[in-house]
Amino acid sequence: MKGTPTAALAAIALMALQGCATTGMTEAEKLATYRAAAGEPVSSFTYLGRISGWTPLDDEHIAVWTRPKEAWLLSFSGICQDIEFTPMIGLTSQGSRVYAGFDKVLVDSPNSMRLPCRIREIRPLDVTRIREAEKAAREEAQDASSGT
């Protein structure tokens, strides 16, 4: 039974990665979209031990969904090794909260280690705005590929 949560997290992570690949955006456009949809920095957010999705944006930023309509832009203190390629991540937390400057994203590396990436900044994301921008980018990419 222990493998079930890990398998579920891996499946969610894979779906998140597949979703990003189909947005029609470059990495830079995707990061710009998420930054534009981010609110002011906050010191922490509630974390009940479950991630409903995540999107690597580059080696210094990741979007993490804690609920289907609640997401956070996390910026790291430096480069987060393997974040763009890992099948799974985890979060450290203190008393059901994740704190900027203290907590970390744990990245499963190819050598079976969990590499910690310290969270420098947390910003709430406007999920509706992101979905609309990604939909528009997909439609634009589809129009370009069909020649219209």
Rank of each mutant, 00 (worst) to 15 (best):
R120D: 15
T148K: 08
M113R: 15
G19D: 07
R123P: 10
S112P: 07
T148M: 13
A136V: 07
A10C: 05
P5T: 04
K135Y: 14
V42W: 05
E139G: 01
A38M: 01
K2M: 11
W54V: 04
D103A: 01
S112K: 14
D108W: 08
S109Q: 14
A37Y: 01
Y99M: 11
F85N: 14
L74P: 11
M88P: 12
T46K: 08
A32W: 03
S146C: 12
L106D: 02
P87S: 04
A38S: 08
P87N: 07
A10G: 05
S145I: 09
I12P: 03
C80R: 03
H61G: 07
W54G: 03
I62E: 11
E121P: 08
P124I: 03
K104N: 15
R35I: 11
T22C: 03
T4S: 12
P56R: 00
R67C: 06
C20P: 03
I89P: 00
R67N: 12
P5A: 00
P110E: 06
W54S: 10
L9M: 09
E29K: 06
L57I: 02
A8M: 02
P116L: 09
M1W: 08
L74F: 09
R123V: 05
K2A: 12
M88E: 14
E40R: 13
